[in-house]
Amino acid sequence: MLAVLRSLWDEPRPPDAPRRVWRDWVLAGVIVPVAVLEGVLRPDLPWRAVSVGIAVGLVPTVLWRRSRPLLMVVICFTVTGLPSVLTGEPLSEMYTMAYQLILPYALFRWGSGREAATGLVIMVVAASLTTAGGHGTGADTIGAFAVLSTTVTLGGALRYRARARARELDQAKLLERAQLARDLHDTVAHHVSAMAIRAQAGLATADSRPEAATDALRVIEAEAGRALAEMQAMVRVLRTDRPMDLTPGRRIADIEHLAGHTPSGPRVDVRISGDLDGLPPSVEAAIYRLAQESVTNARRHARHATRVEVRVTADDASVRLRVNDDGDGGLVRPAASPGYGLIGMIERAHLLRGICVAGPDPGRGWTVTAVLPRTGAAT
Rank of each mutant, 00 (worst) to 15 (best):
M1D: 09
L2P: 01
L8W: 03
E11C: 11
A17Q: 05
I31V: 15
P46A: 10
R48N: 12
G53W: 02
I54V: 15
A55K: 08
V59L: 06
P60I: 07
T61M: 10
R65Y: 01
R66Q: 09
R66Y: 02
S67P: 03
L70R: 09
S84V: 05
S92V: 14
S92G: 09
Y95A: 15
T96E: 08
F108H: 11
G113Y: 02
R114W: 06
A116M: 12
G119A: 08
L120N: 04
V121P: 01
T131D: 11
A132D: 04
G134N: 02
D140M: 09
T141P: 00
V147I: 13
R159F: 05
Y160V: 15
A162Q: 11
R163C: 08
R163L: 15
A164D: 12
A164T: 13
A166K: 06
E168Y: 04
K173Q: 13
L174M: 11
R177N: 15
R177S: 15
A178D: 13
R182V: 09
R182G: 15
L184R: 05
H185Y: 10
H190M: 14
H191D: 10
A194T: 11
A196C: 04
A204L: 14
A204N: 07
A213E: 06
D215Y: 02
E221K: 09
R236D: 14
R236K: 14
R236S: 13
P243K: 09
T247W: 00
T247D: 09
T262G: 15
R271C: 05
G278A: 06
P281T: 08
E293A: 13
T296R: 12
N297Y: 04
A298K: 01
H301R: 10
H304S: 13
T306R: 09
V308R: 00
A314Y: 00
D316F: 01
V319E: 03
V323S: 03
L331Y: 03
L331G: 14
P334M: 01
P338M: 05
P338N: 03
G339K: 06
Y340M: 14
G341S: 04
E347L: 06
R348V: 14
D361N: 13
T367Q: 13
A370G: 04
R374G: 11
T375G: 08
T375W: 02
A377P: 06
T379G: 15
